[in-house]
Amino acid sequence: MLEKTSLEYYFFYLATSVVIIAGFKAASEVIIILLLSIFIASILSAFLKFLTKRGIPKLLAYGILISVLTIVSLLLTYMINTSLASFTTNLPTYEQKIKNSIILLITYVEDFGFTVNKEEILKALNFSYFFKFTTDILGNIGAIFSKALLVFIGVAFILSETKVFEKKLKVIFNSNRARLSNFKLFSHNLQKYFIVKTFTSFLTGSFIFIALFFFEIEYPILWAVVGFLFNFVPVVGSIVAAIPAILLSLVSGDFEVTIWLIIVYMVINITISNVLEPKFMGKELGLSPMIIFFSLIFWGWILGIVGMFLAVPITMTLKIAFESASNTKWIGVLLSDLSGRKGRS
């Protein structure tokens, strides 16, 4: 009877999960705005606390934060839209220049006595596909920024409710201090993750901008923002973010610059992803590589390309939430990366 009851519970939880996932997919537009608002607000709330602890009145600190957020959002939106429009207009020119560069390279190879079929190579490379892929990605990033106003309003309301929300939590968990402590631990770890990830993403974008400016690659601000955003997408994010700038470097016909640019991208991403992030986050906030891969597919399917940006933050949120409660801690362990922990098998 016990096994039958347990089996019924499992089927109940499975059916509930399917209904929730279907609801998420159907309401993906609203869910995206909600999740972006929550995640951005969780980062900014740390800065709000920092300002209030320095003796700045909460209302003034709130005003400063919202003003800075507004100015940064408007500047980024303007610069990205301007660069994106110019890049799209010049796409046919870039495509032809890259084809000419490849033909020049083939001619150079033929000088050494090799026979190369130029038409077959150009057909196989299919530059139209590469550029369409790039413009599709940039278009999706533009779609994210088109939701900026709603996200901005959502962030403003969430930040204004921060103090009230803390009071509500104390009322809810008044008789259960352990659950209140677990929730505070969950909030702390989640905020730590977002702050560290945003900081390392900012570093990634900054170094990319400096490198592209140094090598005189067009639209360095646009590719820096792309690098910043795609740093939130593990494994494939750094590769995808590098494609447009590397293609543009080929336009110049200077293959030495292209090689150096590839090396710089590799150094930036390996150093930040494999050295800085683990050092600041610690292994307790690490996700299993397998979980990261499948979370990209899963949340990308539900929420589109925005889901790929949010895949790790959402999964990390679930992991921290599971680890904060004793009865679900085992799920959090399954999601964790224990490869670097000693004394565990």
Rank of each mutant, 00 (worst) to 15 (best):
234 P>Y: 09
136 D>F: 02
243 I>N: 05
83 S>H: 09
257 V>N: 12
81 N>R: 12
204 T>R: 01
256 E>R: 10
134 T>K: 05
35 L>R: 04
138 L>E: 08
257 V>Y: 01
214 F>D: 13
283 K>G: 02
311 A>F: 03
293 F>I: 13
96 Q>F: 06
315 T>I: 13
63 G>M: 00
280 F>Y: 13
93 T>C: 01
329 K>N: 13
326 S>I: 10
152 F>H: 10
46 A>I: 11
148 A>L: 15
89 T>R: 13
323 E>F: 01
186 F>H: 09
323 E>V: 02
61 A>T: 04
87 F>E: 05
133 F>D: 12
12 F>E: 03
268 I>T: 06
340 G>I: 06
57 P>T: 07
210 I>H: 02
137 I>S: 08
222 L>E: 04
62 Y>L: 11
248 L>G: 05
303 L>V: 03
256 E>D: 08
114 F>H: 14
250 L>T: 05
279 K>I: 06
143 A>I: 01
4 K>D: 10
228 F>M: 12
153 I>P: 01
29 E>L: 00
131 F>H: 06
65 L>S: 02
270 I>Y: 12
74 L>H: 08
23 G>C: 02
21 I>F: 09
213 F>L: 12
239 I>A: 14
273 S>Q: 03
46 A>S: 13
216 E>D: 15
266 M>D: 11
316 M>T: 14
318 L>V: 15
135 T>K: 10
55 G>R: 08
135 T>D: 15
118 K>Y: 04
7 L>Y: 14
73 S>M: 08
23 G>E: 07
141 I>D: 02
289 P>S: 03
3 E>C: 11
116 V>M: 12
323 E>T: 11
159 L>G: 10
127 F>N: 07
88 T>D: 10
343 G>V: 04
338 L>E: 06
37 S>F: 09
43 I>F: 15
304 G>L: 04
37 S>N: 05
89 T>C: 00
342 K>A: 08
320 I>Q: 15
284 E>A: 02
126 N>S: 10
264 V>Y: 12
152 F>E: 06
195 I>Q: 01
311 A>M: 05
234 P>R: 14
207 F>R: 02
327 N>Y: 11
102 I>N: 07
305 I>T: 11
304 G>I: 04
77 T>F: 13
270 I>V: 13
97 K>N: 14
316 M>D: 03
88 T>H: 10
343 G>L: 11
80 I>D: 01
332 G>Q: 09
144 I>L: 15
107 T>C: 05
14 L>D: 01
27 A>M: 07
257 V>E: 03
308 M>H: 08
104 L>V: 04
55 G>I: 03
240 V>M: 07
17 S>R: 04
63 G>A: 10
233 V>M: 08
64 I>M: 05
328 T>H: 08
103 I>N: 12
6 S>D: 09
268 I>C: 04
76 L>C: 04
312 V>E: 06
155 V>Y: 07
175 S>C: 00
269 N>V: 00
98 I>N: 00
242 A>Y: 00
166 E>L: 08
237 G>I: 11
28 S>A: 13
231 N>P: 00
